[in-house]
Amino acid sequence: MTDSLVLAASMVSRAAALRRRAVRDALAAAFVSGLGRTAVSAVWVAAILGVTLLQFVLPLLPWFGARPEELARIFLFAVQHLGDVLAGVLVVGQAGLASTWELWRARERHRFTSVAAAGMDPLELLVLPRVWGLALVYLIGGMLFKVTAVVAAVWVNYAIDGRFLGPEIGGILEEGGRGILAGYALNAAVGAAVGVVCCAPVLGRMSAAETVAPIGRVFRQALVLIFAAKLLFFVI
């Protein structure tokens, strides 16, 4: 009997906690729906990148003496790893800076004050959903580029030896399978870090322009460094 009561009490308290979380989820959903546009952009960029490489870059490589396997590896490397960098550019360039701008506008319109004056935590309601949203968008962006890489691998395989499935596909799936969770966790963490960097300065007294310029510069440099590190790792 006591156990049943304890169980019932814990279920009720859990349900109440879930209801409370629902408020944050509603806000997060509102932001994520806006940020979803970024994910759509990621699809377009992935498609454009894939088509550009396949149509224009790939046919040129044999002129430089590349063998079909090397050609496939170069292509897959470009789509897979440059994809992460492009997803990062999209997250920073669109969703991150949009978040900075929205928060700056919210601050100028005293939304932090009005939320706090209604007894709510502005950090919880205005800032955290954006950080989660950015983590999600970077995650989705990274996934989209991985999918593009697999599709492109199928295409390349077909172009090289006339079969849709071959060793390159096996390799990329194997590699993807090994690092899939770690890779996505890293993407989400980077997205959240972008969110923190984009949102944090607004909580101080900096203007939008003062906030945006350094963020853009820092992330441009960071993304170049990440790509260079990946290239180095690949070469070694």
Partner: peptide
């Protein structure tokens, strides 16, 4: 919003 934030059921 405020009521739901303070744990009132929707």
């Amino acid at each position: 919003l405020s009521r739901r934030y303070h744990d009132v059921w929707p």
